[in-house]
């Protein structure tokens, strides 16, 4: 049996695909162009810009900073987000509804505004060290992802399972770790990946919080682009995509990506 597909649907799907993949192809193309400026389609073929990316120490340094922030910020955010999501799912009836929306605020507020207010309060207000304010800033912008994604998996969790554990002699705090967490693991990992990528790519909050000597990779890329319009940034972008793909691949290998759709 042949399924009938409308030609307009095929065209629409092709267009969608093109818009999603097109920019990636352009960046990959530009990164191997043998010219001293960004161009597409590439002229010539060289890996010089990749070599250049590794030779600029600022990129390496800020990449490490970005990784630390993504891991640390997400971990910090999970420490707040998981208990919050748990409380909202467990006491859905008792707690007021607006609580859930408060945790989405960092997404609703324009990031520029969030970054500026964090700078005013954390960096210049109470003079926190740059790294610490960056960490707090990143934890804040990824918090909505942690709360929402973990919350979604907690909403389908039957809390009588937790009560069953308690009735069998397991204290509540222990039941949280031995029964609840293993059953919402999928949501936690999905939330972690989303938050990690959001943090790694963040510009608008980081730009207000970075300072002398401490910067993140996206900010460094921006600064580099203002001075040199060469294909190095394209090659760094491709490498960043590689890191993201690698993270997904490792997760796929160890846990299976199907949990993302569960």
């Amino acid at each position: 049996m042949q399924r009938k597909t409308h030609p307009l649907l095929i065209a629409f799907a092709a267009l969608t695909f093109f818009f999603l993949v097109g920019p990636l192809i352009i960046i990959i193309g530009a990164s191997v162009s043998d010219t001293s400026f960004l161009t597409f389609p590439p002229r010539g073929l060289t890996l010089h810009w990749y070599q250049n990316a590794f030779e600029i120490s600022a990129f390496k340094r800020t990449f490490v900073t970005s990784l630390m922030l993504a891991v640390g910020g997400t971990a910090l955010s999970m420490c707040i987000g998981i208990p919050a999501a748990y409380a909202m799912a467990r006491y859905r009836v008792e707690l007021p509804r607006f609580l859930g929306n408060i945790f989405v605020l960092p997404i609703l507020i324009p990031e520029i505004v969030l970054g500026f207010s964090l700078m005013k309060s954390l960096a210049t207000g109470i003079n926190l060290p740059i790294m610490l304010s960056l960490l707090i800033g990143h934890a804040l912008i990824v918090l909505p992802y942690c709360v929402r994604v973990v919350g979604a998996s907690l909403n389908s969790f039957d809390f009588s399972i937790e009560e069953a554990a308690v009735s069998l002699g397991c204290p509540r705090w222990k039941a949280f770790f031995t029964v609840l967490l293993p059953n919402v693991r999928a949501g936690i990992i999905a939330g972690f990946i989303l938050a990690f990528i959001t943090s790694l790519n963040d510009v608008s909050v980081s730009i207000f919080l970075t300072g002398p000597g401490v910067s993140t990779l996206p900010i460094q890329l921006l600064a580099h682009m203002e001075q040199f319009f060469d294909p190095t940034i394209a090659s760094v972008s491709v490498l960043l995509m590689g890191v993201t793909v690698a993270v997904m691949a490792i997760v796929e290998r160890t846990l299976g990506l199907t949990f993302l759709t569960k």
């Binding site: 039957d158 009588s160 399972i161 009560e163 069953a164 554990a165 308690v166 009735s167 069998l168 002699g169 397991c170 204290p171 509540r172 029964v179 059953n183």
Partner: peptide
């Protein structure tokens, strides 16, 4: 509750 030593069977089974 965890010290009460009561066997409970739930409507939703509540298996782990």
């Amino acid at each position: 509750a965890h010290n009460r030593d009561i066997g409970l069977v739930f409507q939703t089974y509540a298996l782990f």
